[in-house]
Amino acid sequence: MTMFSTIRLRAAAVLTGAALALSGCFMTPGKFTSELAITGPDSFTFSYEGEIFFLGLSKLAQMDAANPEAFTPNCYDDETFESRDCTAEEEAIQREEWEAGAAERVEQAKKQAQQMAALMGGIDPSDPKAAEELVRLLQRQKGWDRVVHKGDGVFDISYRVSGTMGHDFTFPMIEGFPQTNPFVQVFLRKGSQVRINAPGFAAQSTDSGGLGTVLGAGSFAGLAAMGAAEQSREAGQNPAAMPGVPVMDGTFTVRAAAGMRILANNTDEGPVAQTGGEALIWRINPRTAQAPTALIAAAP
Results as ranks from 00 to 15, higher is better:
residue 2 T to L: 12
residue 2 T to S: 14
residue 3 M to T: 15
residue 4 F to Q: 13
residue 4 F to G: 15
residue 5 S to I: 10
residue 8 R to K: 14
residue 9 L to P: 03
residue 10 R to H: 14
residue 11 A to N: 15
residue 11 A to H: 12
residue 13 A to I: 09
residue 13 A to P: 05
residue 15 L to S: 15
residue 16 T to Q: 09
residue 17 G to Q: 09
residue 17 G to V: 06
residue 18 A to F: 05
residue 21 A to G: 15
residue 22 L to E: 15
residue 22 L to A: 01
residue 23 S to E: 09
residue 23 S to V: 01
residue 24 G to P: 01
residue 24 G to S: 00
residue 24 G to H: 02
residue 27 M to Q: 09
residue 27 M to S: 08
residue 27 M to C: 10
residue 27 M to W: 12
residue 29 P to T: 05
residue 30 G to V: 01
residue 31 K to Y: 14
residue 31 K to V: 13
residue 31 K to E: 13
residue 32 F to D: 00
residue 32 F to S: 00
residue 32 F to G: 00
residue 33 T to F: 13
residue 34 S to H: 00
residue 34 S to A: 08
residue 39 T to N: 12
residue 40 G to E: 01
residue 40 G to K: 00
residue 40 G to F: 03
residue 42 D to S: 14
residue 43 S to W: 06
residue 43 S to L: 06
residue 44 F to V: 01
residue 44 F to G: 02
residue 45 T to S: 13
residue 45 T to M: 07
residue 49 E to S: 13
residue 50 G to Q: 12
residue 52 I to L: 11
residue 53 F to L: 04
residue 53 F to K: 03
residue 54 F to N: 07
residue 56 G to H: 10
residue 56 G to V: 03
residue 56 G to L: 09
residue 60 L to W: 10
residue 60 L to K: 04
residue 63 M to R: 14
residue 64 D to V: 05
residue 66 A to P: 01
residue 68 P to Q: 02
residue 68 P to G: 03
residue 69 E to Q: 11
residue 69 E to Y: 13
residue 70 A to E: 10
residue 71 F to N: 03
residue 72 T to S: 13
residue 72 T to W: 10
residue 72 T to P: 01
residue 72 T to C: 13
residue 72 T to E: 11
residue 72 T to V: 15
residue 73 P to N: 01
residue 75 C to P: 00
residue 75 C to R: 00
residue 75 C to W: 01
residue 76 Y to G: 01
residue 77 D to V: 02
residue 78 D to P: 09
residue 78 D to R: 08
residue 80 T to W: 03
residue 82 E to M: 14
residue 82 E to T: 10
residue 82 E to L: 13
residue 82 E to P: 00
residue 84 R to W: 06
residue 85 D to T: 15
residue 85 D to I: 15
residue 86 C to F: 07
residue 86 C to T: 01
residue 87 T to I: 02
residue 88 A to H: 07
residue 89 E to Y: 03
residue 90 E to C: 04
residue 92 A to I: 02
residue 95 R to H: 10
residue 96 E to K: 05
residue 98 W to A: 03
residue 100 A to K: 07
residue 101 G to F: 04
residue 101 G to H: 08
residue 102 A to T: 07
residue 102 A to L: 05
residue 103 A to I: 03
residue 104 E to S: 12
residue 106 V to M: 07
residue 109 A to Y: 06
residue 110 K to C: 03
residue 111 K to W: 13
residue 111 K to Q: 09
residue 115 Q to A: 09
residue 117 A to G: 09
residue 117 A to I: 08
residue 119 L to P: 04
residue 119 L to N: 05
residue 122 G to Y: 05
residue 123 I to A: 08
residue 123 I to Y: 08
residue 126 S to C: 06
residue 127 D to H: 06
residue 129 K to E: 10
residue 129 K to H: 14
residue 129 K to W: 11
residue 130 A to E: 05
residue 130 A to K: 05
residue 130 A to F: 11
residue 132 E to M: 12
residue 132 E to Q: 10
residue 133 E to C: 11
residue 134 L to S: 06
residue 134 L to Y: 10
residue 135 V to P: 00
residue 135 V to R: 08
residue 136 R to T: 11
residue 136 R to V: 08
residue 138 L to S: 12
